[in-house]
Write a protein that binds this DNA or RNA. Structure first.
Lengths: 121, 121
DNA sequence: GTCGTTGTACGATGAACAGCGTACTACTTG
DNA sequence: CAAGTAGTACGCTGTTCATCGTACAACGAC
């Protein structure tokens, strides 16, 4: 019954923190996967080109920025995107970033190596 | 006739660079002032709580990210926001950030000290 | 209990970057 | 020409942060 994770009130999250969180390509990868069918998945379900501890770090930054919710389920964690909360706080911002990310991706020249072919798997 | 400044093709600017540029509060301050009546102004016209050299640095980051245009006019530089270019490249993104910034600001608790009362002057 | 799974804590490290001051260039004005 | 204005270049500094490995904790299955 320990294992409670802190989530910020959406009213208190700062634009600074949100944009800093979104400025990292790995974290945008997570957000994008969450928004395209990977919602409510464990952290390992995301095929990220970094070590486990780095991955933990990125998920935490996203949670503390108010972008995702993390809830324990056994040993794993369910990650969900806080779409509505973010749209309340900063309307259009998250959608614009996800859209921009997808747009960049379909243009080829993906900066995030090692994930290209396995995203859909 | 020297004094030409490089501006990236809008098609080549990366989301990474743009978000990194927008993640800094000083640079968002510049962008916000540009979008709210301060367009086409010299760098010194922006009342920023940093030194001149730091200011130069931020303007350059914005230009190289494709967010602003800088054109010499005598000893000064005219700064303009590349709204349409940005909206072509990443639709809705710039507007969402500016809107979010203004929203944050009118909520009080402005993180950027020293600019509050003198913005309108 | 033991073992495997999933994620965390804790250092440590190296790179990136915001900030500054000083010295400088380029232009305008007198 | 000299003086003033607007911005740049350069070097430096301190901080932040992404990354890693290793050791550990919490839970499920057996």
């Amino acid at each position: 019954m320990a294992r409670e994770l802190d989530h910020p009130d959406i009213g208190t999250v700062s634009l600074d923190t949100v944009l800093a969180a979104l400025a990292d390509p790995i974290r945008r990868e997570i957000i994008t996967q969450l928004s395209t069918g990977h919602n409510d998945q464990a952290c390992i379900a995301f095929d990220l080109p970094v070590s486990k501890s780095t991955s933990t770090h990125h998920f935490r930054v996203l949670r503390e920025a108010g972008l995702i919710t993390q809830r324990y389920e056994g040993t794993a964690i369910r990650n969900t995107l806080r779409c509505e909360d973010m749209d309340t706080r900063f309307p259009g911002l998250l959608d614009a970033v996800i859209d921009a990310e997808c747009r960049t991706r379909s243009q080829g020249a993906n900066r995030l190596v090692g994930v290209d072919a396995t995203v859909g798997a």
